[in-house]
Design a binder for these strands. Structure first.
Lengths: 206, 206
DNA sequence: CGGTTAATTGATCCTGTTCAAACTAAGTGG
DNA sequence: CCACTTAGTTTGAACAGGATCAATTAACCG
């Protein structure tokens, strides 16, 4: 895609900000991007964690980004002008189909996350998160166990709708129950995927 | 679309069920459809409420529906064979674009709902729900105040990740604070949209 | 008008939050 | 190389919001 220009961001950098005019959207080629929504009082909800192959910054409302995006690690991505892309896709069925498929996939995952946050208990949510993350890493980045999180407890909390203390306690509980082994603060070995999946009560789909 | 065949369902009927082979997806022409995910122990999360113009039953995983759909009211919809549609859309950019746009819109709303469930308190969630529902009804069905809910307290609870008792208490609280007036059990008059929107701390987008 | 279902209200319990302190790990400079 | 610093994490104790269980009330319908 000649329309795309490669760009880089450092961990913590903002790729796009909710409420600002929509310019580019991005296809991630390296690293992790958190998509989130900020409330007036500072509360934050991460609604998606995107990695290699994912589009982000595409969703708009009244000409502005609807969510914000921040780099969880150093990130590389291709930027596309949304306006030009949309015009182009209107004449290229394959592109439009690919876009539809990406959005459909994300909608499936986001619906799943909504169900997790709405119904599961704290430890179940964290268990789901671990399975989901390890699945994505393995699938997209060929990552092998143990799982390197790349997210702080606060970031996991913002993703799961919990406080960071509760996330920490949930880790301890999963450890004590023998579901996982914690290696330092940023690595986790899942002892038995199936057993953890049963605990979570949800077939975790990547 | 000659591919589509009109069908009808009565309130409570299941349109499609998660885990069963994907056949048709539907474009709603009348009524309300709840999209949900069921957990092994009976807990349920409604991840979307679809109405006129919305596609539903499109999301699949390994050849099966990923969510279930149930009629909240009597429903009419056009059914499309997913396999044939996908093949057809691959050659028709306008169709593929329309699909992408529908999915993008739903992803935006679902992300928003995820943020609401993850961060807001019970009454704020119910306030958000009322604003969202009245917005959708007005936009899609030209409905005028007062708002007719068409959902039971249990259904609202399943949508907002709460218990039905908490939803009921939230209604009472919103009533006592003067945000809404309750008319019977199924109708609500929003006294001041803006004031309720401020309470919810989120610009509610349809 | 009685019967039935859904909604409200009350009381208690429990999960997760909040506030606070202790602990860890990874730098940083002497 | 090691003490010191700092940010992040874990753990503890008190608190609060929502869930659960139970009883009452309100709306709906034949």
């Amino acid at each position: 895609m000649a329309l795309g220009a490669a760009r880089r961001w450092s961990k913590g950098d903002v790729l796009f900000e909710a409420g600002t005019p929509t310019g580019h959207f991005y296809k991630v080629t390296k690293g992790l991007v958190a998509i989130f929504r900020l409330f007036e009082d500072g509360r934050r909800q991460i609604v998606g964690i995107h990695t290699i192959g994912d589009l982000c910054g595409y969703i708009e409302h009244n000409g502005t980004y609807h969510f914000s995006g921040v780099a969880l690690t150093d990130v590389e991505a291709c930027g596309f002008d949304r306006r030009r892309f949309t015009a182009f896709a209107a004449r290229h069925a394959d592109l439009a189909s690919a876009l539809a498929e990406d959005m459909t996939e994300k909608l499936r995952r986001t619906g799943e996350s909504m169900a997790v946050i709405g119904q599961l208990k704290a430890s179940e949510r964290v268990g789901y998160f671990l399975l989901q993350l390890s699945g994505i890493y393995a699938d997209r980045m060929g990552a092998k166990p143990p799982l390197r999180l790349n997210l702080s407890r606060q970031e996991i909390a913002d993703y799961l709708g919990l406080s960071l203390e509760t996330v920490s306690r949930a880790f301890t509980k999963l450890k004590n129950r023998g579901f996982v082994v914690l290696i330092g603060h940023d690595e986790v070995a899942i002892v038995d995927r199936q057993r953890l999946a049963d605990f979570v009560m949800l077939e975790v789909t990547i």
